[in-house]
Each structure stands twice: as C-alpha cells, then as structure tokens.
C-alpha cells in the first residue's frame, strides 16, 4: 500500500543548516576500545567529489543486536554509548567519516546469515530521494560469501562496490575528512575505506528496500 505516503524531495544544497550534528560521525564515543573508522568519498558521474552530501549509517551492535523494540530476539541494551546510527556531512573534498564498532552477523528470517554490514543512506542536492547502499567488510570473506544480499548481485565487479577495504592507518591523512578521525582517540583499531560512486563506471550498487 503506497496510498497516502508523502513523497521525497531533495535535501538541496543547504542541508548543512539543518542536518549535521557535532557528534554525528560518532556511532560510539571517541576513544571507545575496538572502534573503527569508516571513511571515503562521495563521487559524481564525472568522478568529481560531492561536497554537499550527507552519509548516514545504521547497523547492529557487535553481538548482532539492535536497541529496537521490533527486533524479535528482544531489544538489546545499548552498551558504552553505542548508538547504531552515524551521520557525516561530506567536506569540500567529498569525504565523510564514521567512527563505530564492527557489527555482528545477523540471522535471516528465512534461515541463513547476513554478513556484518551497515545500511547506508546518501542524501545530496541532485538526489530527489535518498539512495541506499550497504557497507560490508573485506576481511569477512567467508561471511560475505554466504550473504544473501551480496549473492543477489551476480556481477562480481558490482558486488565489489559494497566491500569496504582495509585502509591501514596511513590512509588517514589521505582522507582528509579529519574531524572524526583526529578525535577518535587511541581506541581505534582499524580503518576501512568505502567510496560511494553515485553514477558512472564502478557505480555503487544501490538498493530498493
């Protein structure tokens, strides 16, 4: 039933007035042990950075649970300030950055297991509706191989657009988004790079959920 649903409209070029939060990139507080940084660029069809986008993430906690009443396994109690949600506006270079914990795997309603992932929404001028994608982790090859969403994408090159690569600490300076990473503190134990290509060659896979 789509009857009566309010249609989407673009966030436009001035979303920075209303949407960014000072603590937006911090799914967990700075300095949280075992936290990771996920960072990357949002790029347009010409490969140019998108400096006025907003990237939002939503994910399970490390045990694969959600602090939400609709999780039929029971509502998880949020630990250590874990919020599940991240929000990062892109900077002039098109970079975003999220500081979080690695999510756990999830049971599927019809059996099987989803590999650890984050759901992602991207908003920007030029996008009349958000686009939705997923971040998976390159070092979860075995879990990724059994994931039903990844399996639904037959072209390996397209599937690869959903996998965040381990970046190593050296990439931190390169990313330049800075704010979150610099203040993430000593707790961080890993950086992952996930670029979002809105259009063109190696366009990121976007989903209709």
């Amino acid at each position: 039933m789509s009857e009566g649903i309010t249609p989407s409209q673009t966030v436009g070029p001035f979303l920075a007035i209303g949407l960014p939060w000072a603590d937006g990139p911090f799914v967990v507080p700075p300095g949280t042990p075992d936290s990771i940084v996920i960072e990357g660029r949002v790029l347009d069809g010409d490969g140019q950075p998108v400096p006025d986008a907003l990237v939002e993430t939503w994910q399970a906690d490390p045990d694969g649970r959600f602090d939400h009443p609709d999780d039929p396994r029971g509502r998880a109690v949020a630990q250590g300030g874990f919020r599940g949600f991240g929000r990062s506006a892109t900077n002039p270079s098109g970079n975003y950055q999220i500081v979080t914990l690695r999510p756990g795997p999830l049971p599927c309603p019809d059996g099987g297991t989803e590999a650890p992932h984050l759901d992602v929404s991207v908003f920007a001028r030029g996008l009349l509706d958000r686009v939705v994608t997923r971040i998976y982790f390159a070092d979860e090859a075995q879990a990724n191989a059994a994931d039903p969403v990844l399996a639904s994408i037959t072209d390996p090159a397209r599937r690869a657009t959903l996998i965040a690569a381990e970046a190593g600490d050296a990439a931190a300076g390169d990313a330049g988004a800075g704010d979150a990473g610099r203040t993430a503190g000593d707790g961080t134990c890993g950086r992952f790079r996930f670029d979002i290509r809105l259009q063109g060659e190696l366009e990121t896979v976007f989903f209709d959920a």
Partner: peptide, 14 residues
C-alpha cells in the same frame, strides 16, 4: 543537478 548524481543502474531489490 541530477544529471551527474542520479545512479544510472536500476536499484537492486533488497
């Protein structure tokens, strides 16, 4: 603004 920013591939049902 949608010309270089709208995805050209169809959305994948999830």
């Amino acid at each position: 603004s949608s010309r270089l920013r709208a995805p050209s591939q169809p959305l994948v049902p999830m």
